[in-house]
Design a protein around this nucleic acid. Sequence first.
DNA 1: CACCTCAGTGCACGAGTGTGCACCCAGTTG
DNA 2: CAACTGGGTGCACACTCGTGCACTGAGGTG
Lengths: 213, 213
Amino acid sequence: MRSHRRRDEHAPRAEQKQATRQALLDAALRLVADKSFDSVSLREVTREVGIVPTAFYRHFESMDELGLVLVDETFRTARRLVRAAREGPLPAEQRIRRSAEALVHYVQAHRPYFQFLVRERFGGVAVIRSAIRHEIRLFESELATDLARAPELSAINTADLQILAGLLVTAMTAITEQVLELPPRGEGLDDVIVLAEKQLRLILLGASIWQSR
Amino acid sequence: MRSHRRRDEHAPRAEQKQATRQALLDAALRLVADKSFDSVSLREVTREVGIVPTAFYRHFESMDELGLVLVDETFRTARRLVRAAREGPLPAEQRIRRSAEALVHYVQAHRPYFQFLVRERFGGVAVIRSAIRHEIRLFESELATDLARAPELSAINTADLQILAGLLVTAMTAITEQVLELPPRGEGLDDVIVLAEKQLRLILLGASIWQSR
DNA sequence: CACCTCAGTGCACGAGTGTGCACCCAGTTG
DNA sequence: CAACTGGGTGCACACTCGTGCACTGAGGTG
């Protein structure tokens, strides 16, 4: 029974602390794969990492705080997807297809994060719920200003663009949920992509002939 | 400290049992209002009802079983809404508006049930999740066959109708979630109705000019 | 009226929980 | 090299939890 067990002996102190902290976050993410966050105990998390329960407090004040950091990490991850999608050139016709593909593959590649997001979005911990809601609202607004630049949508006023953005995000969320329902090594991925493309196309088709007021 | 305490003394036995059973369901529904189902304990539920923990087993084999009954009750409730919406005459133009109103008001009037549904749809208990998923899929199919009867949508093949139904249900779910985000005595209800109407209208607008294949 | 049924009781158990406290010792710092 | 810092330890506490068991007493039944 050694004390001060660590993954990497002889590592600088700050670095080692960061490693343990990240290990706690990873462990929590792993545990919420098959139960909800508020039924994961502090002790479970530390057990998974291999440290004693009280050592948890050297890194987080409570499980809630850890949860909020998890939300943050998740959206940092998600933002990378969006930025990539935004920067790509816009061949108009191919664009919807590419977006659907990107979304589905990205979610599949980062399952645990999106799993957490989808589950805790309406989960039992209020602070986490509202943190996620806030980030999603932010995302919708960004999308709305993006859409404002599209000439095909010039007949839509700002308020309606916000609604359109909301609907698109809703659809993307639903697609995300469908990816997560697939078995982890997903064969049905291509079907979901086709479905995603059609849903997005349908919405944008409606938007293209929508007249505000 | 009396034993055999009961809400209604001198009641027929079977009736009394049913009352306790319902009280357990109601208590559970009340408790999931601010935590997730799998972190509600059997003891909490019985404490809320005012019976001893072990008496729980006279009514349900486990919390999971109670959860499944709750899913059932919830969808029995939801089905009443759908049936009402379906039976109403179809003045085409007013129809979307009326549906949006009906949905929003109905959700508001049965908050606890829909709260439970939304939260546990992706919650930590697998059997409940899949029970809910199953019911929703059923609902989508019913909606799809309904849509098949609409002349405006005759250019859409069966597979695409299923997708359209899925998208509509997704939108309705999102609207449900928004109603639940409102304060219980909701003032913002009317705004959500307007939003719901626009979203549904947008989708159906796209559908009306969609050409399968 | 005697007997049976069974919803609800009361107790006890082992297991799991969050957190306070004193301690230890490797890594850093003057 | 001596002193300090702070991540991790080990123990202890007071809970809560699910469930097994023997029980009680009111409601139903022959």
